[in-house]
Write a protein that binds this DNA or RNA. Structure first.
Lengths: 197, 197
DNA sequence: ACACTTACTTACTAGTTGGTAAGTATTGCC
DNA sequence: GGCAATACTTACCAACTAGTAAGTAAGTGT
């Protein structure tokens, strides 16, 4: 009975290890700042092994964004997320960003790719647009439901507020990268102060 | 009388032309996505000519941020800025960001460098921190004065609100890059709605 | 007129980039 | 046992990267 044929959380296959490390390097150093050589050296394999799984860097980059989109769709459908009230759903979202902060002040995927956006392959650009769109839509619905039950207080449309909130959070992780964790905490504190009655 | 020895707006010297183009490429494609070859080709000179003016890319990058910091210090001291009321000073700031949007949706300097921050030379990192710090301080004072005269309405400290606003604006230009001008307009509209009575 | 400085070009280098082709060891399948 | 698929390694490659060294032409200062 070959135990290596099915996946466990403890023993990810090479394909996943590549994607995981690429994600870390992307969020910590930027898309144009890591190479197949970097990945290969740290994984103890040869660059050509990465080309075997992801023929081009375009393929790798696209797989990165596609996986994140898949994660989002799964996350927002999770019982422990759908079962929450609007205020707790917002907390769950904020926890994701705070988790990035805690992991060596990684920026979010959007913040990592926005600046270099025009140098990215078409498929990656398209996926990132969908990702940002779906996340914004989800938050807009949370905000809308929260205002109806007086869990949130804000002026303007839920869609505009959702866009503003997510944009601020992406930016807040970038500011934390440039300075330290403090500005992120200050910004999130300000957001909470304004949104929660 | 050699007219080439003093500068006019119409005939910038090579040193400045390099810096200008490097800035455009930085704000449009990212720091790790342009090379001396790109700059040289578009300027009609050889890469070595750029090394003459900026020996290393570190020097060039640092000069870019240093110039931006110089611009900020000059701008905030300009009579046509210091002479304005808080609401108009905010408008003047927003006009700068809208100008970026109008120029091919360029992100701001901070937004362009934050993601790749850890790959930047020390000097560049330090200058960017100072730049962001001084801009935030300036806006905090504007907000403080504006709230005192009822030109602005917000909760929390002026410093926190300033940090939040600038972070949102930097992010808004990135969102505009990924999608189109609409989200930027939506976000700025939301900010105005919340801030102005 | 001569030395010096400025602003380049030409020619080169070593290292890195993404990518390919061919070979190899291990595995499951009939 | 033979076969094909999987997951690699070895050995390349052309293009690009930042950067250097030496040469040159045109002013500038005295």
């Amino acid at each position: 009975m070959p135990s290596a044929t099915f996946q466990t959380a403890l023993a990810p296959d090479t394909r996943t290890r590549i994607l995981d490390l690429a994600e870390v390097l992307l969020l910590e150093r930027g898309y144009n700042a890591f190479s197949y050589h970097h990945l290969a050296r740290e994984l103890g394999i040869k660059p050509a092994a990465i080309h075997y799984h992801y023929p081009s860097k375009d393929d790798l980059g696209t797989a990165l964004v596609t996986r994140q989109l898949r994660r989002l769709r799964k996350w927002r459908g999770l019982p422990r997320v759908t079962g929450l009230g609007p205020a707790q759903q917002l907390d769950a979202l904020l926890a994701v960003y705070e988790n990035h902060l805690g992991h060596d002040r990684r920026v979010c995927l959007f913040g990592a790719l926005a600046a270099d956006f025009r140098t990215l392959p078409e498929a990656m650009q398209a996926e990132l647009r969908v990702f940002n769109h779906e996340l914004t839509e989800w938050l807009a619905e949370v905000l809308s439901a929260g205002r109806a039950t007086d869990a949130f207080r804000f002026v303007g449309s839920p869609a505009a507020k959702a866009l503003q909130l997510l944009t601020t959070l992406a930016g807040a992780l970038q500011v934390a990268r440039v300075h330290d964790e403090t500005p992120f905490q200050v910004i999130v504190g300000q957001l909470r102060l304004e949104l929660l009655p």
